[in-house]
Design a binder for these strands. Structure first.
Lengths: 363, 363
DNA sequence: CAAATTGATGTTAGCGCTATTAAAAAGTCC
DNA sequence: GGACTTTTTAATAGCGCTAACATCAATTTG
């Protein structure tokens, strides 16, 4: 019966429908409520300067009273494609991607952008093809997370097409693209200090994938802090590639050495989990016999036992920041030549959980 | 220098810009190319009946020639909110969410729907609030993945508001909502058969969270197959809640029993990974001394060592199917009373990897 | 004090697409 | 064969929003 109302009850049923249509209130309603013109509301919603504070207030009040929320589709349409943002992803570690997507989606919703997600695999051709699709799709800007942020060819192609590119999660600022990232160097140093303060003087480090600049920064941060330790500390560095397996194998190597470390710092959580497994396999207690630290604070960090001491990388916030930045830049770009790439650094946080502890007695 | 062209060639730039605006071609272009009216193109794009086959063909040809792709924003706007689909998520296992999101996003793009992602935490109030926002936001339909798919209150609220609800990943069809799911019972049975065929006759099972019907189905599938085994098999069932930790603990209990199982089948990959860790801790070789099987085939399954034998749940495909279904149903609902909920079953697959093997010799 | 300059708002015209209605072409019937 | 359906196509009016321009006060200035 309910659905019947579609045609028949144009009056009654339609009431609830007309309310439902687009979330109910439109700018028009708000304008009427606030006693201003539609355009003024638009200005307020977009933070355009040149609106009297009192007017702005009354509009905001009307917005709240009516529970108005702007229609992203209409906005995108009116803006004529500006605000269409592409996001290229391939296959980053599971936790990373979902957090990133959620952050970007969230940001898109608040800022009224239209996110277009494009997928590609690891190959360069696939990446180039995806970039091509994004450019052809008329994106105003493109967000490049983790692995693609390092791709010179992708960024060059975007520049060529006049599309704003944002590199997320690189080890250092790029000269050819805006960036949103964290201070990998400082974070790694901080974690290393944490281990040193716990008394560890022989620390193993598992490197990340070599083609990512963030890996390098993490290693440098670690080494710098090791050199600074007093009394002096010693380190063993093993290669890894950000996978659980590589962490497991690197830890095996570290633990089977003549003089094994009392702590292992892995460049990400996956590898730390691998190290944990290797330790357990040898019957070592964590953190009783061996401390293990990770990096990123992905869901995996709290899924393992004991829960990992790690560095919280604000992935969702970085995605949101990237979205905001790309939006702003793509708007500005059409006005003036703001050539200097912006480099936005977001704060990280050392999260101490159960996997690190005092160095064991030298018995 | 390249970037200079941006501003300097204002006239030239303008041209390319107007082309770039929205990915270039619009329906208008296609219509002109095909020699028909704009509306005919729209009909073809939406598969509306009442277009001569020859006309349809020539339109399709023009679409391909020009590389036209419809503008989702304009579509959503013109349809007046129909095609606005909500997606509620809380905190499913990391791998699950990103796969699901990607699938949904993908489907949204092809079918021209506008996805609105809404987040909530585990509490019922939070869920109710999120549902409220989605309803107020004028969604035509809402997709409820895993944990929320079991929420009677959420589904009732949506029904009340006349919003189509799709439950994804429940153990069995719901009477009050459409569903997209896999056959958990059959899949669990299949995995159990795999273990039995490897010679295992004493198998441990780790249950999933009790508030999810899928957990029950998986257990039932397991038990049914155990009973059917010839020669007869024995089983030990331990509780779990889908977390790594619960899997670890359950495996500890199983392995410390007087007569431990030779294989452990966990209701999901996280718990299987936990079981793996417990086995390694005891110095057991997997699969030499103990076989371990998971369920879901999340990224974790291939992140651990040895890689897990598991059931591949087509999460992305399920999300896409859910999107398609909700779109279709929300359209149909306004026409006629299609009351009988649709239950769509997607195929799963047994993935045999390195964590399961022949039963060890009884020496 | 009239004219030029701001500052704060209102008006108008679409963005690309879909419903709806009107019109035209093609059948159908007696 | 002309009035009457039944297909098929064309034309028009928005969906909710924003850019660009127009307006109208409140200033400032020569």
């Amino acid at each position: 019966m309910v659905s019947l109302s579609k045609k028949t009850t144009r009056r009654g049923g339609r009431v609830s429908r007309s309310k439902k249509r687009t979330g109910g209130v439109t700018m028009d309603h708000v304008a009427r409520e606030a006693g201003v013109s539609l355009m003024t509301v638009s200005r307020v919603m977009n933070n355009v300067p040149g609106v009297k504070a009192s007017t702005r207030d009354s509009v905001m009040r009307a917005v709240k009273a009516l529970g108005y929320s702007p229609n992203a589709a209409a906005r995108s349409l009116a803006r004529n494609g500006a605000g269409r943002i592409g996001l290229l992803y391939s296959n980053p570690s599971a936790g990373y991607l979902s957090q990133f997507l959620v952050g970007a989606l969230d940001g898109a919703q608040t800022s009224g952008a239209l996110l277009v997600i494009e997928k590609c695999d690891a190959s360069l051709e696939s990446e180039a093809a995806a970039i091509g699709r994004l450019i052809a799709g008329g994106m105003a800007g493109v967000i490049l997370p983790a692995p693609h942020a390092e791709s010179d060819s992708a960024i060059a192609a975007l520049r060529e097409a006049g599309v704003v590119a944002i590199a997320v999660g690189t080890g250092h600022a790029r000269p050819d693209a805006h960036g949103v990232r964290m201070d990998d160097f400082a974070a790694a140093a901080e974690m290393t200090r944490h281990l040193i303060e716990l008394g560890h003087r022989r620390i193993g480090f598992i490197k990340g994938a070599v083609n990512q600049t963030a890996s390098v920064e993490r290693l440098l941060g670690f080494e710098t802090e090791i050199r600074r330790a007093d009394p002096p500390a010693d380190c063993l560095v093993e290669p890894g590639d950000f996978t659980y397996r590589s962490g497991f194998e690197a830890a095996e190597r570290l633990l089977s050495s003549d003089h094994p470390p009392t702590a292992i710092f892995a460049s990400n959580d996956d590898m730390a989990a691998g190290a944990l497994a290797a330790a357990h396999r040898r019957g070592l207690d964590v953190p009783g016999d061996l401390s293990v630290a990770g990096f990123d604070d992905t869901p995996l960090a709290t899924a393992v036992w004991p829960e990992l001491t790690t560095i919280r990388q604000p992935v969702a916030r970085m995605a949101e920041a990237a979205l905001r930045l790309v939006l702003q830049e793509s708007r500005d770009q059409s006005r003036r030549d703001s050539r200097a790439p912006i480099d936005q650094l977001l704060p990280h946080q050392l999260i101490v959980r159960a996997s690190t502890g005092q160095v064991p007695d030298k018995s």
